[in-house]
């Protein structure tokens, strides 16, 4: 049986993927936090990606494929932590992959790398510039990770490397920024703004990752879900109350709340509820035949 290594296996997406691929693969997972009650078909090692020990896992296991999910995506920690885990961690992982003969690497990025800008075209393709760092320095590391992975992709043509950029992911297991935002008791929106947002269910992201592995995908791919709705429609469908805050006030409040860690979103994240960041997922569909199983209604119902 072929061997698969999943980093960040204790996160929601890691657990889903381990289950999805448990039939055909011998799975090893690593994570900084343990997975309590992990099924016996997964060998979970609790260790830090940034530590030397992590390399031993690859040396001993010699996985055929690696799925890299170990990213800090929230803003609760410091920027330093984010940078270390996301950028330094990815660099270390890729080096080890090259050294120990991994044949396939899949990295889960996100559509946020394009950034939410007023002049964004709707439905950006994979060749669009990664503008997120321009106005949102807090997630600059995501763009850096993409840079690392794409140079790896070109440097090692014998390794099938792919980057997936799914849109706003919702579901029961996965903790996403958009999920926690929409999960607030009272969801703040910016007065006079109501951009179109694309959503995808966590199980469909899992399916996309599995397809990337099974089809030995190589390249960069947006993963779009069933469609887009205005932000306020999404909030309404998830049955949350909404408060509309005028922009200057919103900026001030969010900045202060974030400073005292009452609220997990840096002010720059506000652009994502003002301007569109929508992507064209047709390249991935063409390459894999992917078809999202969950409709918009299903997605909202799963988190309502």
């Amino acid at each position: 049986m072929k061997r698969l290594l999943i980093t960040g296996i204790s996160g929601g997406q890691g657990r889903l993927l381990a289950k999805r691929l448990s039939e055909g693969w011998q799975i090893t997972g690593v994570d900084r936090v343990p997975w309590e009650g992990a099924p016996e078909y997964v060998d979970v090692k609790t260790l830090d990606l940034r530590k030397k020990k992590f390399e031993d896992v690859l040396r001993k296991n010699r996985p055929d494929a690696v799925v890299h999910l170990a990213f800090v995506r929230h803003f609760r920690g410091s920027n330093k932590l984010r940078h270390e885990v996301n950028v330094a961690g990815t660099r270390r992982l890729l080096n080890s992959c090259a050294r120990y003969g991994v044949k396939q690497v899949v990295v889960l990025s996100s559509a946020y790398v394009y950034g939410a800008l007023p002049e964004n075209p709707m439905y950006m393709d994979e060749d669009s510039p990664l503008n997120v760092a321009r106005n949102f320095p807090d997630i600059r590391d995501l763009a850096e990770v993409e840079g690392l992975v794409s140079s790896f992709l070109w440097r090692y043509p014998e390794i099938s490397t792919s980057i997936l950029r799914p849109v706003n992911t919702l579901g029961y297991y996965v903790h996403s920024s958009i999920g926690s935002y929409l999960g607030l008791d009272i969801v703040p929106t910016v007065t006079g703004f109501n951009p179109m947002l694309q959503f995808i269910h966590e199980e469909d992201v899992c399916e996309a990752l599995a397809l990337a592995i099974e089809k030995q995908l190589r390249g960069v791919f947006n993963v779009a879900g069933p469609g887009a709705v205005p932000l306020k429609t999404a909030i309404h469908e998830i049955e949350r109350r909404r408060i509309s805050v005028p922009e200057p006030l919103a900026h001030l409040i969010i900045r202060e709340l974030f400073r005292f860690r009452v609220y997990d979103f840096p002010p720059a994240a506000m652009d994502f509820i003002k301007y569109p960041c929508t992507v064209d997922g047709s390249r991935f569909v063409k390459a894999t035949g992917f078809k999202p199983l969950f409709s918009l209604r299903d997605i909202f119902a799963s988190v309502a």
Binding site: P118, E119, N120, P121, M122, Y123, M124, G192, F193, P230
Partner: peptide, 18 residues
């Protein structure tokens, strides 16, 4: 504010070539 939403809802868009 508002105008950008109205524009979208009426079927218009920001004029990017793509």
């Amino acid at each position: 504010p508002w105008l950008n939403v109205l524009m979208d809802r009426m079927g218009h868009s920001i004029g990017t070539p793509s």
